[in-house]
Amino acid sequence: MEKIKKKKRKTFTRRDFLKGFGSGALGAAVVPKLVSQDVFSLQTKEGKIPLYSKKQITLNINEKNYSLVIEPRETLLHVLREKLNLTGTKKTCSGGECGACTVLLDGNPIYSCLTLAIRADNKKITTVEGLAADGKLHPIQQAFIEKDGYQCGFCTPGFIMSSVALLEKNKNPLTEEIKTALSGNLCRCGNYSKIYEAVSVASKSMRGA
């Protein structure tokens, strides 16, 4: 991930982009041509991928396979929300600051706004829509309702996904561990105390305690 990001910076700077547009902006007719050309590219393990060319990927989301054509520059968040209409995953900052866009990628919580969709090709993604099974809520979802672990509810999907990831790995977390696991999520309504309560109630119910 890090490596790719660095490469991206090397081959595709903001200055290049502006330069590209400076000329592209000369006339409307030039623009579509420019868009279809392999001008900007991204170096990946599989070789050079032109930024504006399309790529076919398969995403396994909530145990369902979606095969779709995307542009390599598209983030996973964008694909989930705009292309697949899975709007449970939220966007608050689009810059890795808030955690509203948290989903699980092969079981690990990630910021989907900082993850390119091609990076999730053939991987298993879980979103908030995929937690309830057979019409039954996940114990964490249940606990958020019971303990009122939200107010406006906008940050809630992100918090729930981070909590799911935590309780998968740590069945009986201490409050400090809950705080650490959720420290990448912001709740502007400020209901943290109730969110922690919800997570510890859920951990109890999942342990059958």
Partner: peptide, 9 residues
């Protein structure tokens, strides 16, 4: 609550 925690709100 259910709509919120399932992402359907």
């Amino acid at each position: 609550g259910e709509r919120i925690v399932t992402g359907r709100a």
